[in-house]
Amino acid sequence: MENNSRNSWNWGFTAGAENWNGRLAMIGFISAVLVELVSGQGVLHFLGLL
């Protein structure tokens, strides 16, 4: 099997890792905004931490 450098997973601060980090951060931010819009309270209050 041929090891293609585009498909191999590299650890550390790589372009692929930064892309995934950005995507997951956007999903988390949108989720927090939706929770606040739907429930009328912040995420920490929604989870019962405050």
Rank of each mutant, 00 (worst) to 15 (best):
E2A: 05
F13W: 01
L24V: 11
E18K: 10
M26H: 14
M26D: 14
M1I: 12
G40A: 00
W9L: 06
F29R: 13
F46M: 05
S8V: 06
V38G: 02
A32W: 09
G40H: 00
L34A: 15
A17H: 04
V38R: 04
E18F: 12
W20C: 11
A25Y: 07
Q41N: 00
G28C: 11
F46L: 04
S39R: 04
E2V: 04
S31W: 15
N21T: 08
W20Q: 12
E2T: 03
F13R: 01
G12K: 00
F29T: 09
F29M: 12
M26F: 14
M26G: 11
A15Y: 06
G12V: 01
V33P: 09
G28L: 11
L24R: 09
S31Q: 13
S5A: 07
G12F: 04
N10Q: 09
N19E: 14
F46C: 08
S5W: 05
W11P: 00
F13S: 02
F13H: 01
L49K: 12
W11R: 00
M26V: 13
S39K: 03
I27P: 03
N10H: 03
L49A: 13
W9M: 06
W11E: 01
T14P: 02
W20P: 07
E36I: 10
N7H: 13
W9F: 10
S8A: 08
S39I: 07
G48D: 00
Q41W: 03
L50N: 05
G42E: 01
L44K: 10
G12R: 02
S31D: 13
G22Y: 08
L50T: 06
R23K: 15
R23S: 13
I30G: 11
Q41F: 06
S31L: 14
G40I: 04
V35E: 11
Q41M: 07
V35A: 12
W11N: 00
V38W: 07
